[in-house]
Every structure is written in C-alpha cells, then in structure tokens.
Amino acid sequence: MSREWQAFWLAIGFLTRVPMLIQIDYSQRLMNQSSLYFPIVGLFLGVCYAGTYTLLTLAFSPLTSALLVVILHLWLTGAFHEDGLADSVDALGGGHTIEKRLEIMKDSRIGTYGTVALVMALALKVALLTEVNPTWLALLAAPMVARLTPLLIMGYLPYVTDPDKSKSKPVADGFSRARLTIAATFTVFASLVLTVFEPWLLLWGLCATLGVALVWGGYLRSQLGGYTGDSLGASVVFSELVLLLGLAI
C-alpha cells in the first residue's frame, strides 16, 4: 500500500505541476506502476476545472470562463500534452524518414506545423467548451477519459526513440497490461456513473479512447514504427477533442 500511495503521487508529479506532498523512493519500477493512476489524476484535474468553471460563470461569460479554465489547465499541466502535440505534428509533417522524424521530435524548437496544430487545437477546445451542455461535465470527464488513451497505445505498440534521453522511458519499459486493465475498468465505471448527467458520455468516451488509440496508434506505427513520449501527449489532446466533439453534437 505504501508503494501504491507513492505511485499515485508520482503520477501527479509526472502529469502536473502539483508538488508531491510525500517523499518518493523513486525507481523505474515505481514510475511504471504510476501509470495505473493516470486516469485518476485526470479526474482530479477535471474536478479542478469543473469547479473553477462553475465559479467563473458567476462573474463572466461562458466564453471568458472557458478561456480562463484552459489557461488554468495549461498552467497546472505545464502544457505537457500540448508540447507533445506540437512536437509530434512538426516531426510527422516535416520528416521524410523515421530517423528524421525522431530527430525533429527531439528538437525543443517549434515549427510551422506544430504552431498551427497547437493554435487550432486550443481554439477548437475553447469553442467546443462553449457549445457542450453541461460544460462542467465535459470539463470533469474529458481529462480522465483522455489519459487512458496513452495507456492503450503503450499496451499494443513498441516504444521508439532514444530511451536514455526520454522522460517517458520509465513508463514505457515493462508496461503492465494488468494495470492497464485496472485503469480502463476505473475509467469505464466512472464514465458509467457520469451517464446520469449525459447518457452518451460512455459511447463518446469509448470513441475518444479506443478510436483515437486505433487511428492515431495505427498512424504512428506506419510513420514511426511505434510510439514516443511526445506522441502519447498528442493522443491525450486528440482524445479530449473527440470527446468534446461528441458531447457537442
């Protein structure tokens, strides 16, 4: 139980800027175990976003409130997944070989493809948040559902890139499919509970996780031969957008 508690806080420290309030006996195995808690960390973020949005709408318009919540998201997560999206699109758009794509992906600079993808993704997210009803439910569910997608991709694709220089190496090495099953079960159960407020949530949640994992994962297999840490971050952004698109219909 002590190791699981540490794994939970390590997941928070890995995915957010929230300081870890306990001492962590860090190891690669513990980092691997922390993947189980990614959807739970997403639910924690969702509670923060939904609560903040509800309070903001008491003083501001839905559009302004949505923009402020997205800013809060970027601050809380350090734009972790958005950075992965920009790097992935730059690499896949500008590289003609696997080696060149991986080289571009490691470059800290952002190019035209990544800039356009990042701006459009954030603009679309804000637009969809003003259309979905209730918005608080979308803000609550999307971070949780989306953080299951990278675990699904890790479950069936090989890891590519230089493992010694990658932040996601500890999660990728020896990824546990048993813990993936637990994480998926938690996400499905939580989505079922939330269908009280939105009957279509579970369906669109499956599209956002399985659909993105299959389509984006298949594309990564054809273009890179597997996944990278940046491409996992991009999968979170894609999953959130798919879920919001579905809920906005």
Rank of each mutant, 00 (worst) to 15 (best):
D90T: 03
G218H: 06
K167Y: 05
C48W: 13
A146H: 02
S168C: 13
T195P: 03
S34P: 11
K169P: 02
L243P: 08
A248Y: 12
V119W: 08
A172M: 15
L243Y: 08
I22Y: 05
Q223E: 15
K169G: 01
N133C: 14
C207P: 02
E240G: 08
A117D: 03
V126M: 11
S65C: 08
A121E: 05
V236R: 01
M154L: 15
T57K: 12
I24R: 04
F14W: 11
R177W: 07
G226Q: 07
L192V: 11
A50D: 08
Y156F: 15
W5A: 14
G229E: 00
L137Q: 00
R221Q: 13
I104A: 11
L245H: 05
F197P: 06
L243F: 06
A7I: 10
G217W: 02
M1W: 08
W204N: 03
A184C: 13
Y53S: 04
G174W: 03
G205E: 00
P143W: 02
D162E: 12
E131V: 15
G246W: 01
L206F: 14
S239P: 06
T54M: 13
L192H: 01
M154R: 10
L214G: 04
A184I: 10
D164I: 10
P170Y: 00
A79S: 13
L139S: 06
S35F: 08
F14G: 09
L68W: 07
G211C: 04
A11V: 07
V41G: 03
W204E: 05
D107V: 04
Y26R: 12
Y49G: 10
K125D: 08
A234G: 06
D173T: 14
V70T: 12
V236T: 10
R101F: 08
G94I: 08
L76D: 04
I40L: 15
Q23P: 09
V145P: 00
L128G: 06
L92I: 15
L118H: 05
M144F: 09
R101C: 06
S27C: 09
W204F: 15
E99F: 05
T130L: 10
S108F: 07
A142K: 00
L201A: 06
E240C: 07
W9S: 03
H81D: 03
V237N: 00
A121K: 00
V47Q: 07
V119I: 15
L243Q: 08
L247I: 09
E103Q: 14
P19Q: 10
L192K: 01
G84Y: 04
L151V: 11
P134D: 04
R3Y: 13
S222F: 12
A123Q: 11
I249R: 14
A146W: 01
A172G: 13
D90R: 00
K169H: 14
W200M: 15
F197A: 14
G218M: 06
Q6A: 10
A146Y: 05
A172L: 11
T209G: 07
P150N: 07
S61H: 09
P62G: 08
A248I: 06
I40W: 14
L152E: 08
T185D: 02
E131A: 14
S222L: 15
A146R: 00
L137T: 05
N32M: 11
Q28M: 14
L214N: 07
T209M: 02
M154S: 12
S34H: 03
L232R: 01
L152G: 09
